[in-house]
Design a protein around this nucleic acid. Sequence first.
DNA 1: TTTTCAATAACATAATAATGTGGTTTTACG
DNA 2: CGTAAAACCACATTATTATGTTATTGAAAA
Lengths: 208, 208
Amino acid sequence: MKPIYLAIIEDDLVVQESLVEFFGLHPTIETVVVTNSVEDFLKLINSCEKVPEILLLDINLPGISGLKGLPLIKNELPNLDIIMLTTFDETDNIFKALSCGACSYLSKRASLQNILDAVLVVSEGGSYMSPAIARKIANFYAPKKKSILTSRQLEIVDGIVAGKSYKMIASDLFVSIDTVRSHIKNIYKTLEINCKAELIRKSFNKEI
Amino acid sequence: MKPIYLAIIEDDLVVQESLVEFFGLHPTIETVVVTNSVEDFLKLINSCEKVPEILLLDINLPGISGLKGLPLIKNELPNLDIIMLTTFDETDNIFKALSCGACSYLSKRASLQNILDAVLVVSEGGSYMSPAIARKIANFYAPKKKSILTSRQLEIVDGIVAGKSYKMIASDLFVSIDTVRSHIKNIYKTLEINCKAELIRKSFNKEI
DNA sequence: TTTTCAATAACATAATAATGTGGTTTTACG
DNA sequence: CGTAAAACCACATTATTATGTTATTGAAAA
């Protein structure tokens, strides 16, 4: 059975060592690169005969942070699957990491066994999210209780988000363009915004 | 210890029975409602003294499908955590289910043990996604290979998406407003669009 | 070295959007 | 019955956006 080539970037030497030791015991995982910074990793990676397939990347690193480093690393090794290790589960970071191509995300409070599970899952083409993280993702998609806009206003918003002009929205809804304007004025007031871009952003962020 | 009240909607009687039997053995889980359709569930739920906290919901049901039923159920029991069980992992369904408020999603090929894990994780406020599903979610966020826009053009797009006017973008980038206009003309041409709304939409859909 | 392309910029014009003020009508609620 | 909210509409003004044409400069590619 082909071993899984693993890399680790972790600046906390205690954590780093415990990871290395733990994975050293595993029969099918071979830790091929271990560094304590993104910079070192990028230097080492070119002169490395065994190219890692999976990387455990700490999100809080001195120098280039894990989050900033992600695109740099992905640029060098596009096929590397990256598992983020994080101390705090900040929602923003989760989505930023995912947007940069991280495929798994787990809390450092997770046990070594959990981290191993994640590595194995990823090596099989899956993805592992710790429960708290997964919940945040689910909540992100979840519908908001109820909009502060009226149903008519929501129809107007739909039109805007769909890229229609006021004129088009007016003719679609069989009302005058001034009515559309009027609705939009009210919508902007309610949402405390003053341009279309904000409206569309809010809509995509499910803030409406 | 307070038991976890569980409900199950599953039309396949073999699966249903094995679930009921399996959870019956668990000390802290009490299965309080079992039906084979969303319709029956909605009828029963009002005359039920023990209100379920977690629901295992099959996605493919006769009559009202699990997906269609989700909002109806959530409407009756807003605090119910719903775990979707699915035979096929269609990406569309995953996101639809999440958008309707499902908090976990797992393949029926998952073992009973996995389903139990999911129930326990959810009962603790987490969320469980099977690896293949989680991977699809991660891939959804992953960056597209490379943009057809130049880096400068991307800076302009960022400004637009952030809700800035041309004037603001110009002053942020220390160029004239006509330069910004010029960039935007080129961007629209390249992307074959002709308004800001489309640009923002594409940006949020990672089509840029 | 010629050509292409990205980035810069000016000038011009038409369309659309943002904002204000004021008004009517219908519907729902206490 | 009165009132409030929602949907409707008009008129007006300014700001911003969309679009066209043209041109210079520097860097990269052919």
